[in-house]
Design a binder for these strands. Structure first.
Lengths: 130, 130
DNA sequence: TGAACATATGAACAATAATTCATATGTTCA
DNA sequence: TGAACATATGAATTATTGTTCATATGTTCA
């Protein structure tokens, strides 16, 4: 590749773009206007990131059957107490689970109705592909 | 090492567990029976992982307004063509978008009705917390 | 055919994230 | 109070993921 070409293919696309410009101009304009604020989209992706880990998905699924304490979860999922506890913290921060002290234990429960609905949608997408 | 493998290699908690044993025994038993196969939960988390990134969320949101080609997206999101293209590949693999060639361009579009619904649920969770 | 354009992709690098280990905090009970 | 238990957390380690760079592939048109 020549020097000239390299310069023209710079990474940030401040430049013209492709010839589709006219074709998709409406869509792009609408997208620019309708797109939620970057901040909001960031929060949204942070939420889904929480669902994007097998350990946390398994914890959430387990809790969808009823409340449990940390050592129950560790035993059920065959994981270390520490790993479970760390992940529960993330779930707490995302307000997907809540916990209360009960004697020496911390009892965790789902804190959101959306969790089951989100699972359902996800599963139905996956199952369509099988 | 993949996440799946790591789950399997996780340190086991061989020990007994807490005194809640009797208290949550039913829930645990039900969870053991109802919990989908690890494989299925892995697929589910892989799906949500795709939603767990700002760039991909923005791409999906943009495409929810209508189809666009790669350079449109790069311009709209102020990102490099390569980065957009890499992320589109992941979205394609997850069957969330489809694409077709149109001359020199590749035109991308949403390939799944679930996307909008998943967005809605996510947003409603986030908005409850504000 | 070859120049120009649009997109895709492998590899390297940088940034994130998950687990483990060691230990701190909080709770019960003798 | 102190021993035993349950949980939480900081730091280190390791794994994973996103972006960039360079370049390859695919398409159009003169």
């Amino acid at each position: 590749m020549t020097q000239k070409q390299r310069v023209e293919q710079t990474q940030l696309s401040e430049e013209a773009g492709c010839g589709c410009k006219e074709k998709h101009a409406d869509t792009m304009e609408k997208a620019r206007q309708e797109m939620p604020a970057v901040e909001e989209l960031y929060d949204l992706s942070e939420l889904f990131k929480v669902f994007g880990d097998t350990t946390r998905i398994r914890i959430l699924w387990a809790l969808s059957e009823g409340e449990m304490c940390v050592c129950d979860l560790a035993e059920l999922l065959e994981m270390g107490q520490s790993a479970v506890s760390h992940q529960l913290r993330l779930l707490r921060q995302a307000r997907l689970v809540r916990c209360r002290r009960e004697g020496k234990s911390s009892v965790y429960a789902l804190d959101d109705d959306h969790v089951r609905k989100i699972f359902e949608l996800g599963m139905s997408h996956i199952e369509e592909l099988r």
